[in-house]
Amino acid sequence: MGPRRDPATPKASARGRAAGAKVVEALIDKVAGRYRALVVLGAGTGMRQGECFGLTIDRIDFLRRTLRVDRQLVLVPSQPAFLAPPKTSASHRTIPLPRVVVEEPAEHVRQFPITHPDGLVFTDDDGRALRRTAFSLLVWRPLVAGVGAPHGTGFHDLRHYFASLLIRHGESVKTVQTRLEHATAAETLDTYSHRWPDSDDRTREAVDQVLGPTTDRKERSGAEPDDLRSALGRAEVVDGVDELLARDGLGMCPGPPGNLRPDHRTWTDAKQRS
């Protein structure tokens, strides 16, 4: 008989197993055209499958690059699919869309015009709402097998991928909590604490940056104009996530980040200040 698991230790499935960047890139490259934007949306926003399935065209603001989540698609056996409020009250949110993500739904609706009476963005070949079981059997499982992804890789692993991407690039617990609409920061830490850098490593890095050799300090802190865009991407998660996604293989984002709101720093202003 094996050792008993400490009840305080989350099960492996609850600790945010994330699909790797190469797996996500392979999924996007291989998925059928009708579902490409769906996979990009899951990986680039952390939205749940039901929220993605229930996305309607009126919830996307292509100009401001935002997406409003206030509904999800609910499926009941032997009944038509219908829209209902999301999982929790914290799930009501407005998501900032990176450029690489917002371009995919725009291209999707151009190729596959909206025909569903509720305005659903993603439907099957017959224009009907996606059903979880059929999508899994006919689309997702063959896709996962086709790219050689680990057995059991699910759509929800795209959400974990998004979380791990933010953590890997220095976002705070509060930011990750907000993006994943967790009710509390404790929920975020319970799921993803194993992905944050070790405090010992942070201590070493902090001291090295200040007291290390002069050449090392200059390399770490002296951002040249060509590196400024990367620095700004770390400072603003809204304009930064598209950079991070691009670097992780979800697409290319040529050109500087846009000025989404008046309080955002524009590329031109940043260049002038440098």
Rank of each mutant, 00 (worst) to 15 (best):
R17E: 15
G170A: 03
L41H: 08
P150G: 03
S136Y: 15
V102S: 12
R179E: 15
F155L: 09
L232I: 02
D248C: 11
R204W: 13
S172T: 15
H264L: 03
V102W: 10
R59A: 14
P85G: 04
T56R: 13
Q209V: 03
V109S: 13
T215F: 13
P98D: 01
R34F: 11
L158C: 01
G148T: 02
S172H: 06
P262W: 00
V237N: 10
L232H: 07
D124C: 08
S78E: 15
V173F: 00
P7S: 01
H169V: 10
V121G: 06
L228Q: 11
R168W: 06
R128N: 15
H194I: 12
T178Q: 07
A231E: 12
S172N: 05
L189S: 12
L165K: 03
P117I: 08
A185Y: 02
L250P: 12
T266L: 10
K218M: 15
D242K: 07
P225T: 00
H160V: 08
A21S: 11
T215M: 09
L55K: 09
T178F: 03
G212N: 06
S230L: 13
P142M: 09
R15H: 10
I60M: 05
Y161R: 10
G258I: 07
T9I: 13
H160P: 08
P225N: 01
W196N: 13
R229Y: 09
P86Q: 03
